[in-house]
Simulated assay, not measured.
Amino acid sequence: MSYVYPVTDVPASPGPTPWQTVGPFFHDALAYAAGPQVAGPSVPGRIRLAGTVFDGGGEPILDALVELWQADQDGRFVSSPGIYEALEGFRGFGRSMTDSGEYEFVTVKPGAVPTIDGRAQAPYIALSIFARGMLRRAVTRVYFPGDDLDGDPLLASLPESRRASLVATPAADGYRFDIHLQGEQETVFLDVGDR
């Protein structure tokens, strides 16, 4: 038997909870102690990878989270427990909040990693973007100018006009990679099957 409560008996809502709305709960739910420090001070060849996350109207998204996964300079991935190691080393993983629309990581340029069937790929960094209103993360890659991009299987599968959305631009202290979630400059995103 169900009972319908009179309006006066309904307790006041404490506010939205994660199951009631999509974000922005990233600062609380996905905190990561090392934050954007993917490569600590003891790692040679550190660079800065930074950019802005834009919405479909070209406005910066002020409360997104960008997550980074990458191989080290020799093309090796760190095992999962290693991502929690001391700040001095290389973790291969980081998280950056976009409080002003900007994200940034201190990392290294990765070495090439072969595909699962052994084919050569250009060095890349994988990024996941979590933002308000998105039910699933958006996943993309960052490639670097000057590498052999023509031989990369993923880039070769894209129309030439779309490839540039995956290539970073040089900056004074590393590289810049802006992320456009929608619109005319939309970044290419990958279907990684996490539904």
Rank of each mutant, 00 (worst) to 15 (best):
residue 2 S to K: 11
residue 6 P to A: 15
residue 7 V to D: 09
residue 8 T to A: 14
residue 8 T to M: 15
residue 10 V to R: 13
residue 11 P to Y: 10
residue 11 P to L: 10
residue 13 S to T: 15
residue 14 P to I: 09
residue 14 P to H: 10
residue 15 G to Y: 09
residue 16 P to F: 15
residue 16 P to E: 15
residue 16 P to D: 15
residue 19 W to C: 12
residue 22 V to D: 09
residue 23 G to I: 14
residue 27 H to A: 12
residue 27 H to K: 08
residue 28 D to N: 06
residue 28 D to P: 00
residue 31 A to M: 13
residue 34 A to Y: 08
residue 35 G to Q: 07
residue 36 P to Q: 11
residue 37 Q to F: 04
residue 40 G to L: 06
residue 42 S to C: 02
residue 42 S to W: 04
residue 43 V to Q: 01
residue 43 V to G: 02
residue 47 I to P: 01
residue 49 L to R: 01
residue 49 L to V: 08
residue 54 F to M: 02
residue 54 F to I: 02
residue 56 G to Q: 04
residue 57 G to F: 02
residue 58 G to R: 07
residue 58 G to C: 10
residue 61 I to H: 09
residue 63 D to M: 03
residue 63 D to R: 07
residue 63 D to T: 03
residue 68 L to W: 05
residue 69 W to S: 08
residue 70 Q to R: 12
residue 71 A to K: 04
residue 72 D to Q: 11
residue 74 D to A: 14
residue 77 F to K: 00
residue 78 V to I: 12
residue 78 V to Y: 09
residue 80 S to G: 13
residue 80 S to M: 14
residue 83 I to A: 07
residue 83 I to H: 15
residue 85 E to A: 15
residue 85 E to N: 10
residue 86 A to S: 12
residue 90 F to M: 05
residue 94 G to S: 09
residue 96 S to K: 09
residue 96 S to W: 05
residue 101 G to S: 10
residue 103 Y to L: 11
residue 104 E to K: 04
residue 105 F to G: 12
residue 110 P to V: 05
residue 111 G to K: 01
residue 111 G to C: 02
residue 113 V to N: 04
residue 114 P to N: 14
residue 114 P to Q: 14
residue 116 I to P: 08
residue 117 D to L: 13
residue 117 D to F: 10
residue 118 G to W: 11
residue 120 A to Y: 10
residue 120 A to E: 13
residue 121 Q to I: 00
residue 122 A to N: 03
residue 122 A to Q: 03
residue 127 L to A: 03
residue 128 S to P: 04
residue 129 I to Q: 10
residue 132 R to P: 03
residue 133 G to H: 09
residue 134 M to G: 04
residue 137 R to Y: 09
residue 137 R to F: 07
residue 139 V to D: 10
residue 140 T to Q: 06
residue 142 V to K: 01
residue 143 Y to M: 05
residue 143 Y to C: 08
residue 144 F to C: 01
residue 145 P to N: 14
residue 145 P to F: 11
residue 146 G to V: 00
residue 148 D to L: 13
residue 149 L to P: 06
residue 150 D to S: 02
residue 150 D to R: 01
residue 153 P to E: 12
residue 153 P to Q: 15
residue 155 L to C: 04
residue 155 L to E: 02
residue 155 L to F: 05
residue 157 S to E: 13
residue 158 L to I: 13
residue 161 S to W: 07
residue 163 R to T: 03
residue 166 L to M: 14
residue 167 V to A: 01
residue 167 V to G: 01
residue 168 A to G: 06
residue 174 G to Q: 06
residue 177 F to V: 00
residue 184 E to T: 13
residue 184 E to K: 14
residue 186 E to P: 03
residue 188 V to D: 12
residue 190 L to I: 15
residue 193 G to R: 12
residue 195 R to M: 07
